[in-house]
């Protein structure tokens, strides 16, 4: 188990280097560098050279990338081109807002989804199952930002019971959590239902029922114990995805989170800010995926066994 974890963590390093390099390199290609925005007509070529030197633009890209990463390791991502504020600190101050929103929608989503999924699987093929399927399909195909806007129209402008933006109270969480949680709960419900149905077909369940294990115990000990694994994976994946993709819902509610910060930075052509935000968000995304993988190995002995038995992976000849 420890070996597996170390293996995974070490594997993270090249991934993170590649990811940050790709983003840094791509944004480097973006039209309009820092220098271009500062050049005025009166400037001589010498002035421009001095400016370039000041921002390190006279050095090759790979050097700047190295410097950037070195500073990043020390918690310094430079300052925003537009506001001049330190990016790392800004990100860290806004990050809790995104985390709170994502986690609360996740908790609500899971609390609805798992009972619903079990329920649908139990009554598979009946009208209840079909109703649940209809609900989940609706959740899967409804754009979260659209649902968010419809909720705004009704609950913020017509009935006026919830605030339209962030105000720090529990009330401002209600609409974003619904908008965000609906599609999440739909995905998890589907995963729960199909995982249970999948396990239900297994021979060991027939054995358990045949030898007279009470149904309640079959569900708890045999079905759920095995169905957990794909469900947990799905939940982990959803966590990573909402944290990374919070931009849309944050834009709807002007939520002071990191997603909105990124959209704002890009639309203002604040390249340093955009780069820092994307790299930090991508890092967090990868870290969550890592945690999911480790949890996956904890709950599934089969995965663990692949690493403890010495051979890394069995080859299919």
């Amino acid at each position: 188990m420890i070996r597996y974890t170390i293996n995974r963590i070490l594997w993270l390093i090249p991934i993170l280097i590649c990811v940050s390099f790709i983003i840094f390199g791509l944004l480097e290609l973006a039209p309009g560098s820092i220098i271009d925005t500062m050049i005025t007509e009166e400037m001589t070529t010498e002035d421009i050279e001095i400016l370039k030197e000041k921002y390190g633009m006279d050095k090759p890209m790979i050097y700047r990338y190295g410097l950037y990463m070195w500073n990043l390791l020390h918690g310094d991502l430079g300052t925003s081109q537009v506001t001049g504020l330190p990016i790392f600190e800004m990100y860290m101050s806004r990050w809790p807002n995104t985390l709170m929103l994502s986690l609360s929608s996740l908790v609500v989503g899971v609390l609805i989804a798992i009972p619903l999924g079990i329920f649908a699987a139990k009554y598979a093929g009946t009208i209840w199952d079909n109703l649940t399927t209809g609900f989940t399909m609706l959740g899967l195909s409804m754009p979260a930002f659209w649902l968010g806007l419809l909720l705004l129209i009704w609950f913020a402008y017509r009935i006026r019971i919830f605030p339209a933006g962030y105000d720090g109270t529990w009330k401002c969480f209600v609409m974003p959590v619904i908008a965000n949680g609906f599609s999440m709960s739909a995905t998890i419900t589907r995963q729960t239902r199909s995982a249970i149905l999948e396990v239900n077909r297994k021979d060991y369940l027939r054995t358990a029922r045949a030898k007279g294990v009470p149904e309640r115990q079959v569900t708890r000990k045999h079905v759920l114990a095995n169905a957990w694994i794909p469900i947990i994976t799905q939940i982990g994946l959803m966590t990573a995805m909402t944290l990374a993709g919070s931009a849309v819902i944050e834009a709807v509610y002007s939520w002071p989170g990191v997603g909105y910060m990124l959209v704002d930075a890009i639309s203002r052509r604040d390249v340093t800010m955009a780069c820092g935000t994307v790299i930090l968000t991508a890092t967090l995304y990868v870290l969550i995926l890592l945690v999911v993988d480790i949890i996956y190995a904890v709950v599934d002995p089969r995965i663990r066994a692949q690493y403890t038995s010495g051979k890394r992976k069995r080859r299919t000849a």
Partner: peptide
């Protein structure tokens, strides 16, 4: 390994970055 790296980039961020560069 290249796929792993691609997979580690959150889709929406990658989309935003690509659109920013290409217009």
């Amino acid at each position: 390994r290249i796929t792993d790296v691609l997979h580690s980039l959150p889709g929406i961020l990658l989309g935003m970055v690509i659109v920013t560069i290409l217009g």
